[in-house]
Design a protein around this nucleic acid. Sequence first.
DNA 1: GTCTATAAATAGATAGAC
DNA 2: GTCTATCTATTTATAGAC
Lengths: 184, 184
Amino acid sequence: MARQSDTRARIQAVARELFAAQGVRETSLRQISDRLGLTKPALYYHFASREDLVRSIVQPMVDDLERFVAAREKTPARDAAGRRLLLEDYFELMWRHREVTVMVVRDLSTLADLDLTERMFDWRRRLTALLFGPEISAAQQIRATVALGGMSDCTVEYAHLPLEQVKDTAVEAAAAALGPATTP
Amino acid sequence: MARQSDTRARIQAVARELFAAQGVRETSLRQISDRLGLTKPALYYHFASREDLVRSIVQPMVDDLERFVAAREKTPARDAAGRRLLLEDYFELMWRHREVTVMVVRDLSTLADLDLTERMFDWRRRLTALLFGPEISAAQQIRATVALGGMSDCTVEYAHLPLEQVKDTAVEAAAAALGPATTP
DNA sequence: GTCTATAAATAGATAGAC
DNA sequence: GTCTATCTATTTATAGAC
Protein backbone atom coordinates (compact mmCIF):
# COMPACT_ATOMS: atom_id res chain seq x y z
CA MET A 1 0.00 0.00 0.00
CA ALA A 2 2.90 2.33 -0.76
CA ARG A 3 0.86 5.00 -2.49
CA GLN A 4 -2.73 4.96 -3.48
CA SER A 5 -2.62 8.02 -5.65
CA ASP A 6 0.61 9.89 -6.00
CA THR A 7 -1.02 12.18 -8.54
CA ARG A 8 -3.65 13.30 -6.07
CA ALA A 9 -0.97 14.47 -3.65
CA ARG A 10 0.99 16.16 -6.42
CA ILE A 11 -2.10 18.08 -7.49
CA GLN A 12 -2.61 19.23 -3.91
CA ALA A 13 1.03 20.31 -3.57
CA VAL A 14 0.96 22.40 -6.75
CA ALA A 15 -2.44 23.86 -5.93
CA ARG A 16 -1.38 24.77 -2.38
CA GLU A 17 1.72 26.51 -3.69
CA LEU A 18 -0.17 28.50 -6.35
CA PHE A 19 -3.00 29.33 -3.94
CA ALA A 20 -0.52 30.73 -1.40
CA ALA A 21 1.54 32.60 -3.99
CA GLN A 22 -1.16 34.29 -6.06
CA GLY A 23 -4.46 33.71 -4.27
CA VAL A 24 -7.09 30.98 -4.33
CA ARG A 25 -9.61 32.82 -6.45
CA GLU A 26 -6.86 33.99 -8.80
CA THR A 27 -5.73 30.43 -9.55
CA SER A 28 -7.59 28.44 -12.23
CA LEU A 29 -7.71 24.70 -12.62
CA ARG A 30 -6.01 25.20 -15.96
CA GLN A 31 -2.97 26.75 -14.28
CA ILE A 32 -2.74 23.81 -11.91
CA SER A 33 -3.08 21.15 -14.59
CA ASP A 34 -0.62 22.94 -16.90
CA ARG A 35 2.00 23.07 -14.16
CA LEU A 36 1.66 19.30 -13.77
CA GLY A 37 1.66 18.49 -17.46
CA LEU A 38 -1.94 17.30 -17.21
CA THR A 39 -5.27 18.50 -18.55
CA LYS A 40 -8.22 19.85 -16.61
CA PRO A 41 -10.37 16.71 -16.87
CA ALA A 42 -7.55 14.75 -15.22
CA LEU A 43 -8.06 16.87 -12.14
CA TYR A 44 -11.71 15.93 -12.06
CA TYR A 45 -10.78 12.29 -11.83
CA HIS A 46 -9.07 12.98 -8.50
CA PHE A 47 -11.39 15.67 -7.13
CA ALA A 48 -15.14 15.97 -7.52
CA SER A 49 -14.97 19.74 -7.95
CA ARG A 50 -12.76 22.76 -7.52
CA GLU A 51 -14.22 23.30 -4.05
CA ASP A 52 -13.41 19.69 -3.16
CA LEU A 53 -9.76 20.33 -4.03
CA VAL A 54 -9.59 23.51 -1.96
CA ARG A 55 -11.29 21.82 0.98
CA SER A 56 -8.90 18.87 0.90
CA ILE A 57 -5.99 21.31 1.24
CA VAL A 58 -7.47 23.29 4.13
CA GLN A 59 -8.88 20.31 6.02
CA PRO A 60 -5.69 19.12 7.78
CA MET A 61 -5.30 22.51 9.46
CA VAL A 62 -8.96 22.53 10.44
CA ASP A 63 -8.65 19.10 12.03
CA ASP A 64 -5.44 20.08 13.83
CA LEU A 65 -7.03 23.25 15.19
CA GLU A 66 -10.11 21.42 16.42
CA ARG A 67 -8.02 18.76 18.16
CA PHE A 68 -5.74 21.40 19.67
CA VAL A 69 -8.50 23.50 21.20
CA ALA A 70 -10.48 20.49 22.42
CA ALA A 71 -7.42 18.97 24.10
CA ARG A 72 -6.52 22.19 25.94
CA GLU A 73 -10.08 22.64 27.21
CA LYS A 74 -9.71 19.41 29.16
CA THR A 75 -6.80 20.76 31.22
CA PRO A 76 -7.03 24.55 31.33
CA ALA A 77 -4.06 26.34 32.92
CA ARG A 78 -4.50 30.08 33.00
CA ASP A 79 -1.48 31.07 35.08
CA ALA A 80 1.47 32.75 33.40
CA ALA A 81 3.24 29.48 32.59
CA GLY A 82 0.16 27.76 31.20
CA ARG A 83 -0.75 30.78 29.14
CA ARG A 84 2.75 30.94 27.76
CA LEU A 85 2.68 27.28 26.80
CA LEU A 86 -0.66 27.73 25.05
CA LEU A 87 0.71 30.62 22.98
CA GLU A 88 3.83 28.63 22.11
CA ASP A 89 1.99 25.52 20.99
CA TYR A 90 -0.61 27.55 19.10
CA PHE A 91 2.16 29.38 17.29
CA GLU A 92 3.81 26.10 16.34
CA LEU A 93 0.52 24.74 15.05
CA MET A 94 0.00 27.73 12.78
CA TRP A 95 3.63 27.51 11.75
CA ARG A 96 3.26 23.87 10.67
CA HIS A 97 0.32 24.90 8.51
CA ARG A 98 1.76 28.24 7.45
CA GLU A 99 1.38 27.62 3.73
CA VAL A 100 -2.35 27.11 4.27
CA THR A 101 -2.41 30.06 6.67
CA VAL A 102 -0.87 32.28 4.01
CA MET A 103 -3.35 31.01 1.48
CA VAL A 104 -6.35 31.60 3.74
CA VAL A 105 -5.18 34.99 5.02
CA ARG A 106 -4.49 36.12 1.48
CA ASP A 107 -8.04 35.33 0.41
CA LEU A 108 -10.42 35.17 3.36
CA SER A 109 -13.35 34.42 1.07
CA THR A 110 -11.95 30.90 0.95
CA LEU A 111 -13.16 30.36 4.50
CA ALA A 112 -16.62 31.64 3.65
CA ASP A 113 -16.84 29.37 0.60
CA LEU A 114 -16.05 26.38 2.81
CA ASP A 115 -18.44 27.51 5.56
CA LEU A 116 -15.55 27.84 8.00
CA THR A 117 -15.97 31.47 9.06
CA GLU A 118 -18.13 30.58 12.05
CA ARG A 119 -15.77 27.84 13.18
CA MET A 120 -12.79 30.19 12.93
CA PHE A 121 -14.49 32.70 15.21
CA ASP A 122 -15.45 29.87 17.54
CA TRP A 123 -11.83 28.71 17.89
CA ARG A 124 -10.79 32.29 18.61
CA ARG A 125 -13.47 32.56 21.27
CA ARG A 126 -12.48 29.28 22.92
CA LEU A 127 -8.78 30.16 22.83
CA THR A 128 -9.60 33.50 24.46
CA ALA A 129 -11.51 31.66 27.17
CA LEU A 130 -8.49 29.43 27.75
CA LEU A 131 -6.36 32.54 28.22
CA PHE A 132 -8.71 34.63 30.36
CA GLY A 133 -11.35 32.29 31.76
CA PRO A 134 -14.99 31.75 30.83
CA GLU A 135 -16.06 35.34 31.55
CA ILE A 136 -14.44 37.51 28.88
CA SER A 137 -14.57 41.31 29.12
CA ALA A 138 -14.51 43.53 26.05
CA ALA A 139 -10.96 44.63 26.89
CA GLN A 140 -9.79 41.02 27.20
CA GLN A 141 -11.30 40.18 23.83
CA ILE A 142 -9.43 43.07 22.23
CA ARG A 143 -6.16 42.03 23.87
CA ALA A 144 -6.67 38.47 22.61
CA THR A 145 -7.22 39.78 19.09
CA VAL A 146 -3.93 41.68 19.19
CA ALA A 147 -2.07 38.69 20.64
CA LEU A 148 -3.48 35.90 18.46
CA GLY A 149 -3.87 38.04 15.35
CA GLY A 150 -0.39 39.43 15.79
CA MET A 151 1.12 35.94 16.04
CA SER A 152 -0.82 34.87 12.97
CA ASP A 153 0.57 37.85 11.06
CA CYS A 154 4.06 36.70 12.04
CA THR A 155 3.61 33.20 10.65
CA VAL A 156 2.54 34.79 7.36
CA GLU A 157 5.10 37.60 7.16
CA TYR A 158 8.07 35.53 8.29
CA ALA A 159 7.01 32.22 6.76
CA HIS A 160 10.34 31.98 4.91
CA LEU A 161 12.47 32.20 8.08
CA PRO A 162 13.43 29.34 10.43
CA LEU A 163 10.98 28.79 13.29
CA GLU A 164 13.58 29.55 15.98
CA GLN A 165 14.15 33.04 14.62
CA VAL A 166 10.50 33.99 15.00
CA LYS A 167 8.71 31.95 17.66
CA ASP A 168 10.23 33.20 20.91
CA THR A 169 9.87 36.90 20.16
CA ALA A 170 6.41 36.53 18.64
CA VAL A 171 5.19 34.62 21.67
CA GLU A 172 6.86 37.13 24.00
CA ALA A 173 5.12 40.05 22.27
CA ALA A 174 1.78 38.24 22.27
CA ALA A 175 2.06 37.45 25.99
CA ALA A 176 2.85 41.11 26.71
CA ALA A 177 -0.19 42.20 24.69
CA LEU A 178 -2.42 39.98 26.85
CA GLY A 179 -1.37 41.81 30.01
CA PRO A 180 -0.82 40.28 33.47
CA ALA A 181 -2.08 36.73 33.97
CA THR A 182 -4.60 35.76 36.63
CA THR A 183 -2.87 33.93 39.51
CA PRO A 184 -3.85 30.26 39.89
CA MET B 1 -20.58 73.57 -7.91
CA ALA B 2 -22.74 71.56 -5.55
CA ARG B 3 -21.99 68.16 -7.08
CA GLN B 4 -20.02 67.34 -10.15
CA SER B 5 -21.05 63.74 -10.33
CA ASP B 6 -23.27 62.41 -7.63
CA THR B 7 -23.53 59.12 -9.49
CA ARG B 8 -19.78 58.56 -9.38
CA ALA B 9 -19.79 58.83 -5.62
CA ARG B 10 -22.82 56.56 -5.33
CA ILE B 11 -21.10 53.91 -7.43
CA GLN B 12 -18.07 54.09 -5.16
CA ALA B 13 -20.20 53.83 -2.02
CA VAL B 14 -22.04 50.72 -3.24
CA ALA B 15 -18.85 49.13 -4.57
CA ARG B 16 -16.97 49.78 -1.33
CA GLU B 17 -19.78 48.20 0.66
CA LEU B 18 -19.99 45.11 -1.55
CA PHE B 19 -16.20 44.76 -1.73
CA ALA B 20 -15.94 44.83 2.06
CA ALA B 21 -18.88 42.50 2.59
CA GLN B 22 -18.18 39.74 0.08
CA GLY B 23 -14.72 40.42 -1.33
CA VAL B 24 -13.36 42.48 -4.22
CA ARG B 25 -12.79 39.59 -6.60
CA GLU B 26 -16.15 38.10 -5.70
CA THR B 27 -18.05 41.25 -6.66
CA SER B 28 -18.94 41.78 -10.34
CA LEU B 29 -19.75 45.07 -12.02
CA ARG B 30 -23.18 43.65 -12.71
CA GLN B 31 -23.88 43.34 -8.98
CA ILE B 32 -22.85 46.93 -8.45
CA SER B 33 -24.93 48.33 -11.31
CA ASP B 34 -27.95 46.23 -10.34
CA ARG B 35 -27.84 47.55 -6.80
CA LEU B 36 -27.92 51.10 -8.18
CA GLY B 37 -30.64 50.47 -10.73
CA LEU B 38 -28.16 51.08 -13.54
CA THR B 39 -26.59 48.96 -16.25
CA LYS B 40 -22.96 47.97 -16.61
CA PRO B 41 -22.13 50.39 -19.44
CA ALA B 42 -23.25 53.26 -17.21
CA LEU B 43 -20.38 52.36 -14.86
CA TYR B 44 -17.94 52.65 -17.73
CA TYR B 45 -19.02 56.23 -18.30
CA HIS B 46 -17.76 57.10 -14.79
CA PHE B 47 -14.75 54.76 -14.58
CA ALA B 48 -12.36 53.74 -17.33
CA SER B 49 -12.19 50.15 -16.08
CA ARG B 50 -12.94 47.91 -13.18
CA GLU B 51 -9.42 48.47 -11.86
CA ASP B 52 -9.93 52.22 -12.07
CA LEU B 53 -12.99 51.91 -9.82
CA VAL B 54 -11.15 49.79 -7.26
CA ARG B 55 -8.19 52.15 -7.27
CA SER B 56 -10.38 55.21 -6.74
CA ILE B 57 -11.78 53.57 -3.62
CA VAL B 58 -8.43 52.58 -2.14
CA GLN B 59 -6.60 55.79 -3.07
CA PRO B 60 -7.79 58.04 -0.20
CA MET B 61 -6.37 55.61 2.35
CA VAL B 62 -3.12 55.37 0.42
CA ASP B 63 -2.77 59.16 0.34
CA ASP B 64 -3.61 59.45 4.02
CA LEU B 65 -1.05 56.80 4.95
CA GLU B 66 1.67 58.42 2.88
CA ARG B 67 0.98 61.85 4.42
CA PHE B 68 0.86 60.36 7.92
CA VAL B 69 4.20 58.56 7.72
CA ALA B 70 5.96 61.46 5.97
CA ALA B 71 4.75 63.95 8.58
CA ARG B 72 5.91 61.83 11.52
CA GLU B 73 9.33 61.32 10.00
CA LYS B 74 9.91 65.07 10.26
CA THR B 75 9.52 65.06 14.04
CA PRO B 76 10.38 61.59 15.35
CA ALA B 77 9.69 61.02 19.05
CA ARG B 78 10.67 57.54 20.21
CA ASP B 79 10.15 57.91 23.95
CA ALA B 80 7.16 56.21 25.58
CA ALA B 81 4.85 59.20 25.10
CA GLY B 82 5.77 59.78 21.47
CA ARG B 83 5.46 56.10 20.68
CA ARG B 84 2.06 56.00 22.33
CA LEU B 85 0.87 58.99 20.33
CA LEU B 86 2.05 57.38 17.09
CA LEU B 87 0.13 54.20 17.85
CA GLU B 88 -2.99 56.19 18.74
CA ASP B 89 -2.96 58.33 15.62
CA TYR B 90 -2.14 55.36 13.41
CA PHE B 91 -5.05 53.45 14.90
CA GLU B 92 -7.39 56.37 14.24
CA LEU B 93 -6.19 56.60 10.65
CA MET B 94 -6.92 52.94 10.00
CA TRP B 95 -10.23 53.33 11.81
CA ARG B 96 -11.30 56.21 9.55
CA HIS B 97 -10.58 53.99 6.55
CA ARG B 98 -11.77 50.78 8.16
CA GLU B 99 -14.21 49.89 5.37
CA VAL B 100 -11.29 49.96 2.92
CA THR B 101 -9.12 48.14 5.45
CA VAL B 102 -11.69 45.37 5.71
CA MET B 103 -11.93 45.18 1.94
CA VAL B 104 -8.16 45.00 1.47
CA VAL B 105 -7.55 42.56 4.32
CA ARG B 106 -10.31 40.33 3.03
CA ASP B 107 -8.70 40.09 -0.39
CA LEU B 108 -4.98 40.94 -0.29
CA SER B 109 -4.64 40.31 -4.02
CA THR B 110 -6.28 43.71 -4.42
CA LEU B 111 -3.04 45.34 -3.27
CA ALA B 112 -1.01 43.30 -5.74
CA ASP B 113 -3.34 44.22 -8.60
CA LEU B 114 -2.84 47.90 -7.79
CA ASP B 115 0.92 47.50 -7.34
CA LEU B 116 0.65 48.56 -3.71
CA THR B 117 2.26 45.57 -2.02
CA GLU B 118 5.72 47.15 -2.00
CA ARG B 119 4.41 50.46 -0.70
CA MET B 120 2.53 48.68 2.10
CA PHE B 121 5.70 46.97 3.26
CA ASP B 122 7.54 50.27 2.98
CA TRP B 123 5.05 52.02 5.28
CA ARG B 124 5.40 49.20 7.77
CA ARG B 125 9.17 49.51 7.66
CA ARG B 126 9.09 53.28 8.13
CA LEU B 127 6.60 53.03 11.00
CA THR B 128 8.82 50.46 12.66
CA ALA B 129 11.76 52.84 12.30
CA LEU B 130 9.68 55.58 13.95
CA LEU B 131 9.01 53.24 16.87
CA PHE B 132 12.48 51.73 17.32
CA GLY B 133 14.94 53.98 15.49
CA PRO B 134 16.74 53.56 12.16
CA GLU B 135 18.57 50.37 13.19
CA ILE B 136 15.93 47.65 13.47
CA SER B 137 16.77 44.24 14.92
CA ALA B 138 14.94 41.09 13.89
CA ALA B 139 13.23 40.96 17.29
CA GLN B 140 12.05 44.55 16.97
CA GLN B 141 10.64 43.84 13.54
CA ILE B 142 8.67 40.91 14.91
CA ARG B 143 7.36 42.98 17.82
CA ALA B 144 6.27 45.69 15.39
CA THR B 145 4.41 43.10 13.32
CA VAL B 146 2.47 41.93 16.37
CA ALA B 147 1.71 45.50 17.44
CA LEU B 148 0.74 47.02 14.09
CA GLY B 149 -0.81 43.85 12.70
CA GLY B 150 -2.72 43.29 15.91
CA MET B 151 -4.15 46.82 15.83
CA SER B 152 -5.10 46.35 12.19
CA ASP B 153 -6.91 43.14 13.08
CA CYS B 154 -8.87 45.10 15.71
CA THR B 155 -10.09 47.72 13.22
CA VAL B 156 -11.36 44.86 11.05
CA GLU B 157 -12.85 42.64 13.76
CA TYR B 158 -14.48 45.44 15.75
CA ALA B 159 -15.33 47.73 12.84
CA HIS B 160 -18.97 47.79 13.92
CA LEU B 161 -18.24 49.11 17.45
CA PRO B 162 -17.72 52.74 18.49
CA LEU B 163 -14.11 53.92 18.35
CA GLU B 164 -13.95 54.64 22.08
CA GLN B 165 -14.75 51.04 22.94
CA VAL B 166 -11.77 49.72 20.99
CA LYS B 167 -9.01 52.30 20.63
CA ASP B 168 -7.58 52.60 24.16
CA THR B 169 -7.26 48.87 24.81
CA ALA B 170 -5.96 48.09 21.33
CA VAL B 171 -3.28 50.77 21.63
CA GLU B 172 -2.43 49.61 25.16
CA ALA B 173 -1.97 46.02 23.97
CA ALA B 174 0.09 47.14 20.98
CA ALA B 175 2.35 49.27 23.17
CA ALA B 176 2.89 46.32 25.50
CA ALA B 177 3.78 44.09 22.54
CA LEU B 178 6.49 46.56 21.51
CA GLY B 179 8.26 46.22 24.86
CA PRO B 180 10.01 48.99 26.80
CA ALA B 181 10.68 52.24 24.92
CA THR B 182 14.14 53.70 24.47
CA THR B 183 14.64 56.70 26.76
CA PRO B 184 14.99 60.03 24.95
C1' DG C 1 -25.64 59.96 -19.05
C1' DT C 2 -27.81 55.95 -19.81
C1' DC C 3 -29.50 52.46 -22.70
C1' DT C 4 -29.59 47.78 -25.86
C1' DA C 5 -26.83 44.58 -27.98
C1' DT C 6 -22.86 42.15 -28.44
C1' DA C 7 -18.02 40.98 -28.63
C1' DA C 8 -14.12 38.36 -26.65
C1' DA C 9 -12.15 35.82 -23.11
C1' DT C 10 -12.15 32.56 -19.53
C1' DA C 11 -14.02 29.75 -15.97
C1' DG C 12 -15.89 25.27 -14.05
C1' DA C 13 -17.64 21.12 -15.51
C1' DT C 14 -19.07 16.84 -18.39
C1' DA C 15 -19.25 13.15 -22.38
C1' DG C 16 -17.09 9.71 -24.32
C1' DA C 17 -12.85 7.62 -26.58
C1' DC C 18 -8.61 5.24 -25.44
C1' DG D 1 -6.12 7.57 -15.51
C1' DT D 2 -5.80 10.63 -18.94
C1' DC D 3 -7.14 12.49 -23.22
C1' DT D 4 -9.98 15.53 -26.92
C1' DA D 5 -13.90 18.05 -27.60
C1' DT D 6 -17.52 20.66 -26.04
C1' DC D 7 -21.19 22.83 -23.09
C1' DT D 8 -22.77 26.48 -20.27
C1' DA D 9 -22.27 30.42 -17.56
C1' DT D 10 -20.10 34.58 -16.39
C1' DT D 11 -16.95 38.20 -16.79
C1' DT D 12 -14.86 42.66 -18.52
C1' DA D 13 -15.39 45.71 -22.04
C1' DT D 14 -17.07 48.24 -26.37
C1' DA D 15 -20.26 50.05 -30.33
C1' DG D 16 -23.74 52.81 -31.27
C1' DA D 17 -28.63 54.55 -30.49
C1' DC D 18 -31.27 57.86 -27.71
